[in-house]
Write a protein that binds this DNA or RNA. Structure first.
Lengths: 250, 250
DNA sequence: CGCGTCATTGAGATCACTCAAAAGGAGTGG
DNA sequence: CCACTCCTTTTGAGTGATCTCAATGACGCG
């Protein structure tokens, strides 16, 4: 079982390319994530610059690869898997500030210390950029900065939505909002929500307890709004009712 | 009395410069806010480009100048006063997502609709940039984009802190955190916190009710941690105890 | 002085939390 | 294949922090 208290780098880093003395750009060119991430703004011709800057890293489930308060040495681009971002209080209370999936960019910080921690939910693959190398990259590709600004803007909007949720919504509204966000994120029109996170993670994300999350999901099931399947998957049975609940119209 | 429900543009816009056919750059050159805002990255030589892009606007206390969900037509740079940013639910519940003061840049959004509303707390002066003009400005001054990215990063960190507060802190911890943030913001080492906002605003910011905010401030006073002065000003009497409370060490 | 708004304080209600126990699932080893 | 363990999830009962409702007090303004 992964130890949640020790937040160590248990990753296995290796260079993107293993062939030849130079790191090859083929990896980036064939990267399925490129279209969805900051990397998309770098042309094929310049991709070598990108490839030689990145280090591929694998993070095992439950492992922490960003330690809250630790020195901010790297930026990360997630190429596979899902991570949770969180902040903690000295007595152990936790708030998950977001879940970051494939294509997400992590580590934006003016300070030289990370303001949050990051832990892998499942096996996560990511590209790692040292701060110094990233700075050179941004100097050479100003379009990356624009793209990062877009991403940061989107995250700010999400953060504001989450503040509304945490500050003003009831437990039922929070869980409904969460499920809808997830189904949006999964781009699955059938209404099946994959939940790679535990009840504890959902609770820490919604500012609730495990018990309240569980009770609320049971209530949604009894009300016929969702169906709870095997293996952490939930099917949304009454989308309009759930949407009304999530937006507080109920 | 300002009507909070109608969120209209009650501002009095006028061009920055009134002298001559061309808008003069003197306004920006002598602007006391320039050093603290995105404008600082534009050299004196190029300041005319900046000046001709901005429109000075005055917003009266209690007036809304960004309507949540309305078309995102402009960006804003606050040159005087304080505004509150908020989101609302259909039934009237509100969450203030932040207070923005002099030098702050508003309106970052990828969407063409504002994700939040903004209302003046006191008389607010701001520079207004249309989206189209702003885009040209960013094309010409890439350093502005970098500066905006820094500002967005800082706001993200603040948003994450606020999520921790809203999701996991008690009422006492929230109020203590709020007072400390304010004193930090005011750069006043004497520990006097100016509070230009009402109890209702504080409550909507901290995810509490007016009554709880009031009760908690009274409790802090009884405990000797603060002194409540005239005219919405609070003096912090026991900084270390307040800090311990805010961080959850109590 | 009288009015409206904002802030404080009190009493009771409620939603979510805490504590506790049982049920469900996954992995391991006999 | 089953027994066993560990962990997660669910459900129940009671508590408590915060909310709601209500009244009073303080302040500014015409």
């Amino acid at each position: 079982m992964p130890d949640q208290t020790t937040c160590q780098f248990e990753a296995r880093p290796r260079r993107i390319s293993l062939a030849g003395a130079h790191r090859s750009p083929e990896y980036c060119l064939s990267c399925g994530v490129r279209g969805r991430s900051v990397c998309s703004v770098v042309d094929d011709a310049d991709i070598a610059r990108l490839a030689e800057t990145a280090v591929e890293t694998l993070v095992l489930p439950g492992r922490c690869f960003i330690e809250e308060g630790g020195p901010a040495t790297d930026f990360f681009n997630i190429t596979a898997g899902t991570v949770k971002l969180f902040k903690a209080l000295p007595d152990g209370r936790r708030q998950i500030t977001g879940f970051a999936g494939t294509g997400h960019f992590l580590g934006l910080a003016v300070s030289d210390h990370y303001a949050f921690g990051a832990e892998a939910l499942d096996t996560v693959r990511l590209c790692r950029f040292s701060r110094a190398r990233m700075r050179h990259l941004l100097d050479d590709f100003p379009r990356m900065e624009r793209r990062l600004l877009e991403e940061a803007s989107n995250e700010l909007v999400a953060a504001q939505n989450q503040m509304l949720l945490l500050g003003r919504k009831t437990a039922r509204e929070r869980v409904a909002s969460f499920l809808l966000d997830r189904v949006q994120d999964a781009l699955d029109p059938t209404g099946v929500v994959p939940l790679p996170m535990t009840r504890a993670d959902i609770a820490d994300y919604l500012g609730l307890t495990i018990e309240t999350v569980s009770r609320t999901l049971s209530w949604l099931r009894r009300e016929g709004m969702i169906a709870i399947g095997k293996g952490h998957a939930i099917h949304i049975a009454a989308m309009p009712r759930l949407e009304a609940l999530a937006s507080g119209d109920a």
